[in-house]
Deep mutational scan, measured.
Amino acid sequence: MTYKAILNGKTLKGETTTEAVDAATAEKVFKQYANDNGVDGEWTYDDATKTFTVTE
């Protein structure tokens, strides 16, 4: 399944996708990606669109 992350960081804005077996696995991948890029904020998840959003 393909999951998407939308990054609304102070220094990084954009989107990325990952293939994962479930939302929990995708969330770990996206949170690591955000952390590696200095983005730390509030996370939300929309199951209907399989989209995570982080906003700083």
Score class of each variant (00 low, 15 high):
Met1Lys: 13
Met1Gly: 12
Thr2Phe: 11
Thr2Tyr: 11
Tyr3Trp: 05
Tyr3Lys: 05
Lys4Pro: 04
Lys4Phe: 11
Lys4Cys: 08
Lys4Leu: 07
Lys4Val: 09
Ala5Ser: 03
Ala5Pro: 04
Ala5Met: 15
Ile6Met: 06
Ile6His: 05
Leu7Cys: 07
Leu7Asn: 00
Asn8Ser: 08
Asn8Val: 12
Asn8Trp: 11
Asn8Leu: 13
Gly9Trp: 06
Gly9His: 06
Lys10Arg: 13
Lys10Tyr: 10
Lys10Trp: 10
Thr11Glu: 10
Thr11Leu: 11
Leu12Ile: 13
Leu12Asp: 04
Leu12Glu: 05
Leu12Trp: 15
Leu12Thr: 11
Leu12Pro: 03
Lys13Glu: 06
Lys13Thr: 10
Lys13Gln: 12
Gly14His: 12
Glu15Pro: 03
Glu15Gln: 11
Thr17Trp: 14
Thr17Pro: 01
Thr18Asp: 02
Thr18Trp: 08
Thr18Phe: 13
Thr18Cys: 15
Thr18Leu: 11
Glu19Ile: 15
Glu19Ser: 10
Ala20Lys: 03
Ala20Ser: 07
Ala20Tyr: 02
Val21Ser: 11
Val21Ile: 13
Asp22Met: 03
Asp22His: 03
Ala23Glu: 07
Ala23Asp: 05
Ala23Ile: 10
Ala23Arg: 12
Ala24Asn: 08
Ala24Arg: 10
Ala24Thr: 09
Ala24Pro: 08
Ala24Gln: 12
Thr25Ala: 14
Ala26Cys: 01
Ala26Thr: 00
Ala26Ile: 01
Ala26Met: 01
Glu27Leu: 15
Glu27Cys: 14
Glu27Ala: 11
Lys28Gly: 08
Val29Pro: 00
Val29Ile: 15
Val29His: 12
Phe30Leu: 06
Phe30Arg: 01
Phe30Ile: 03
Lys31Ala: 05
Lys31His: 08
Lys31Met: 09
Gln32Met: 09
Gln32Thr: 08
Gln32Glu: 10
Gln32Cys: 05
Gln32Asn: 07
Tyr33Pro: 01
Tyr33Cys: 12
Tyr33Lys: 03
Tyr33Ser: 01
Ala34Glu: 00
Asn35Cys: 14
Asn35Thr: 14
Asn35Phe: 15
Asp36His: 07
Asp36Arg: 09
Asp36Leu: 11
Asp36Gly: 05
Asn37Lys: 12
Asn37Met: 15
Asn37Pro: 01
Asn37Gln: 13
Asn37Ile: 14
Gly38Ile: 04
Gly38Cys: 08
Val39Glu: 02
Val39Gln: 03
Val39Trp: 15
Val39Asp: 01
Asp40Thr: 13
Gly41Leu: 04
Gly41Ser: 01
Gly41Glu: 00
Gly41Arg: 01
Gly41Trp: 06
Gly41Ala: 04
Gly41His: 02
Glu42Tyr: 12
Glu42Ala: 10
Glu42Met: 12
Glu42Ile: 14
Trp43Val: 03
Thr44Ala: 09
Thr44Cys: 09
Tyr45Leu: 02
Asp46Gln: 03
Asp46Trp: 02
Asp46Tyr: 04
Asp47Gly: 08
Asp47Ala: 14
Ala48Tyr: 10
Ala48Pro: 07
Ala48Cys: 08
Thr49Met: 06
Lys50Ser: 05
Lys50Pro: 01
Thr51Ser: 04
Thr51Leu: 04
Phe52Pro: 02
Phe52Ser: 00
Phe52Arg: 00
Thr53His: 09
Val54Arg: 02
Val54Lys: 01
Val54Leu: 13
Val54Phe: 15
Glu56Trp: 10
Glu56Val: 08
Glu56Gly: 06
